[in-house]
């Protein structure tokens, strides 16, 4: 699915939005459509046949939406405790991609959804993903338009807002994205950094990868391991947040924990550097370095 997502010559995703009637959802649907996304249906439990919201046909269940519109991807904008049942309904209806942007999904629910999406052979981006964008092709979620532009970089991020700041500065330097995938900061998630390596290794338009990570978990270390096993064949840059995070204190965002050896900033830096990744702890020098490296490469 990731390969199709980032391939401009492949058939566009046909997207349904679950929880499409909320104020935030309607606002964002308009922005997603403006970004080129083919949104074919909305799902809301109270919908009756013939209902529309801002012109979008509404259905009571994902099964009805898929049957009527051929939707093959779903964006879920539902409350935290509804994510699991809504996502299972989407998987049962046969979609290949689910993106969940809700923050606060219980870990146990995420564990069940991970296994369900794997069993269904579907890709799950989330929990608490800010969304994903392939500029000029589609946008699912909240990623801010001001930081989006077609270009040569892939952005993979655990953190939403830090990636916004990163994306904005790179765009200001003339460097947009082939794709931007917010995998989310929760511990249990459908797609981890390492899972993104194969699709982007073979993706010629992507000339470099920018990883936005943070303390907590072992996702950066696992990425380093994946890169060592099968080199991606293009430069990888990483910015890591949390150097000053006090040990053992809540930092709110899932993933933000200093977890002894692994998960610490030091462990992430050393393992990523050993895998050939250029690691930065401040934004300005990273943007300068990427800009200098890319000079002359960008068509």
């Amino acid at each position: 699915m990731l390969e199709r997502l980032i391939d401009h010559s492949a058939a566009p995703l046909r997207v349904m939005v679950q929880g499409a009637t909320g104020r935030a959802a309607r606002n964002h649907i308009a922005r997603m459509v403006a970004a080129g996304t083919t949104i074919v249906a909305g799902v809301s439990p109270n919908a009756v046949p013939g209902d529309t919201v801002d012109g979008l046909p509404m259905f009571a269940t994902p099964a009805e939406a898929v049957a009527a519109t051929g939707a093959d991807a779903s964006l879920l904008m539902v409350p935290p405790l509804s994510v699991l049942p809504a996502a299972i309904a989407a998987l049962d209806a046969g979609v290949d991609l689910i993106v969940t942007v809700t923050e606060g999904m219980p870990v146990r629910d995420a564990m069940h959804l991970l296994h369900a999406s794997q069993a269904a052979g579907a890709t799950w981006i989330g929990a608490s993903s800010p969304g994903l964008v392939v500029p000029g092709r589609c946008k699912l979620g909240f990623l801010p338009d001001i930081a989006l532009s077609p270009g040569p970089l892939a952005i993979w991020s655990k953190s939403g807002t830090l990636s916004y700041e990163t994306g904005l500065r790179l765009v200001a330097a003339g460097l947009g994205q082939t794709a931007w995938i917010g995998v989310g900061g929760d511990p249990v998630k459908g797609t981890r950094f390492a899972d993104l390596v194969p699709a982007f290794r073979d993706h010629a338009p992507t000339q470099a990868v920018v990883v936005v990570g943070e303390i907590g978990g072992t996702e950066e270390e696992d990425l380093a391991e994946a890169l060592l096993e099968t080199p991606i064949g293009k430069p990888v840059y990483a910015i890591l947040a949390g150097a000053a995070a006090p040990e053992g204190k809540t930092m709110g965002h899932a993933g933000a924990i200093v977890s002894g050896g692994k998960g610490s900033l030091a462990s992430k830096i050393s393992e990523l550097e050993a895998a050939g990744v250029a690691v930065f702890r401040s934004l300005a020098p990273m943007v300068e370095t990427i800009t200098a490296d890319m000079k002359g490469k960008t068509p």
Partner: peptide, 13 residues
């Protein structure tokens, strides 16, 4: 501030 990652990064810098 909003966003844990950017808030942490600001504290770091």
């Amino acid at each position: 501030t909003t966003g844990a990652g950017l808030s942490m990064q600001l504290i770091d810098e």
